[in-house]
Design a protein around this nucleic acid. Structure first.
Lengths: 362, 362
DNA sequence: AGTATTTGTTGTTGACTGCAACATATGACG
DNA sequence: CGTCATATGTTGCAGTCAACAACAAATACT
């Protein structure tokens, strides 16, 4: 009875096969053999195992055009495992249940009164989730550290133990990640940023945060308060108590979530709007410069309203960045906008949950 | 013949046992059983295996004072595996050969002419190493990325492929890490910073760099050019082409490696020296603020001449840090000085090599 | 001196993966 | 349309591994 020994191998291989299908879609057994580096017979054993437990479904292979016996196609069953993802925002809580392979099984949302406490948001999330999914993950905009939200400009929270609140409200464990990091994971796994080894996602909501993801995986401390990088020593007073934070300096220009109006005004030739955008872009570039020097990403995505800011003020962002980062760090840097839009944080939260699920299976 | 399958288990367990001995010193088989979570009999098998290959030595157990048969003591054999560590500095190349368990087997150094090219430094390193050790690791002060030194203020290099130069000169593979990261690894593994989950080591040489280590392991992009964080927009011109870099601003105060003179002068009441230290500390604190916000460490070590700066200007460093980081990030932060001194980078480089060696054994 | 306790040793067992031989299903070719 | 080449699934077997249990050994305690 060698359980923790040899059976660990089986568990690892099971998890690897399922993860492969989850991430890269239906594949033939031959492709799986290649991808996992295992023997044909081993794949057969594991596939039979997973088929019996209902995780995968095999369909008799169709001809591929080339010679040889066609390989059987293997696909994961969406409902076999699912992850409940929740995004907590200032105005509402969004929920989606993702099945294996990334399919959306359910979707819902609840409006939230502004200025809501963490426990109330947790209650709203609990009502939406109702025990669905093997893992539950919440994305919260702010500085997240070990389940706690240390600071959130958007929600006005500080030191809220959201993981505990959610656990109390639902009677289960929760993972908590920050929205920017979640979105980064989403763009890497389901967007087109999978080539980036170090991906920095900027999230512009009521606050400005950033998330760093290395090879697609979030990591402890990847939650970055970009909005509280000091860009102007002795600058504007910020709600956080510091002076000259990026958020405070930007707020002085009078917009934030109201970026559309500003870009429109600038487009119509409004000089003060133009100048505001330019200076915002410059401040953002400076803050980014420090973060880039400190973390060395190779791709930066501008999400939320920063997307609009970047699209209409790319030049000042780039030039401020150029003035504050070494050539080498700059040269390998790609600046882009995300492709998943609103869904990014939810998808990324779900993928974080799936990663945990696969890890737990091993 | 199930090689890549079940034999992988054996390899993993062998490596785990050896790593345990390397990191925590001689232990009894009973302790190893506890630490690795394996069965007594399994430990016995693996120990016999490693004893035959000469990696460990078992000595009959002595009484521990408590009841029961005394457990046999197991120790790793230093010469069984070794790592060659080299530190390249502006004035010399230092070399030490470390055996399993961290023992120093050899030590040597070669003076270097100032303004030396990367290839010449590589040749000097090659002569010192001469095929010794299973792994060879070089610590270089600067921005290291995938074996290349993108920027080094101290050495005056930019875009030097040191890994390739070393490989050419020695006919073997080299790992290249930056000096600050190496020192961080050293302080974590052999110093007293093992409690830190995110350790930031500041290295003051001719340039100012930093290294980030998460749970004792260096990571891609952990090499931080702290000296090129811009602390003064439109400030002093820096050799790197930017303006207002920390290095350039500090250099304006006239010291760098000559910190002893400055602290002494300040101690004697020299007002301008005092002011220089204060302003240097302030600039350092500001740059640190950005790095802390971006990376969220829980411990910072001031190494090289920054040690002296910190010891004599802790107040301005702390207050500037307080003005540029959120309370939560600051509250869990411990500021300290390293304990390994000059040996830190070499020890850390060696430990990086041992980590690679153990990974390769698996 | 005898008992309790802890640990090393040995033979056995259940499990896993890889291999090789065979069976099966397709395309290519005459 | 039949044969051959090719690629893949299937099956029985072999080699390896870690856990377990029973036994032996070595110590402390009474």
């Amino acid at each position: 009875m060698a359980r923790p020994g040899t059976e660990e191998l089986r568990r690892r291989n099971r998890a690897a096969l399922l993860e492969q299908l989850h991430r890269h879609g239906p594949q033939t057994r031959a492709e799986l053999t290649e991808a996992l580096g295992l023997n044909r017979s081993t794949i057969a054993t594991i596939a039979a195992d997973l088929a019996e437990s209902g995780h995968i479904q095999e369909t008799t292979g169709r001809s591929t055009g080339s010679a040889g016996r066609p390989s059987t196609l293997v696909a994961c069953v969406p409902k076999a495992e699912s992850v409940a993802a929740v995004e907590i925002r200032a105005d509402r809580v969004r929920f989606a249940l993702y099945g294996l392979g990334g399919e959306v099984l359910e979707r819902a949302e609840t409006p939230l009164l502004t200025g809501v406490e963490a426990s109330a948001a947790a209650a709203a999330a609990a009502a939406l989730v109702e025990g669905a999914g093997a893992e539950a993950v919440a994305a919260v905009p702010g500085l997240v550290d070990a389940g706690e939200v240390a600071h959130s400009t958007e929600l006005g929270w500080a030191g809220s133990d959201v993981a505990a609140d959610l656990a109390d409200a639902t009677g289960r464990e929760w993972l908590v990640v920050d929205t920017a990091t979640a979105a980064a994971v989403g763009e890497w796994t389901r967007g087109d940023a999978f080539e980036a080894t170090k991906l920095l996602y900027l999230h512009g909501g009521r606050g400005v945060t950033a998330g760093l993801v290395v090879e697609g995986r979030s990591q402890r401390g990847g939650s970055i308060q970009l909005g509280h990088i000091v860009v102007e020593p002795n600058g504007q007073e910020c709600a956080c108590g510091l002076r000259g934070c990026l958020e405070a300096e930007m707020e002085a220009f009078g917009y934030a979530e109201d970026i559309e109006r500003a870009t429109m005004a600038a487009g119509m030739g409004d000089a003060s709007a133009k100048d505001g955008l330019r200076r915002s872009g410059q401040d953002l570039g400076r803050a980014l410069g420090a973060v880039v020097t400190a973390t060395g990403p190779d791709e930066i995505l501008f999400g939320g309203w920063l997307r609009e800011l970047y699209l209409s003020a790319a030049a000042p962002v780039r030039s401020a960045l150029a003035e504050t980062t070494l050539p080498h760090l700059r040269s390998r840097l790609r600046l882009r906008t995300p492709v998943l839009g609103q869904e990014g944080p939810l998808i990324g939260a779900a993928e974080t949950g799936f990663a945990a699920l696969f890890d737990r299976m091993r």
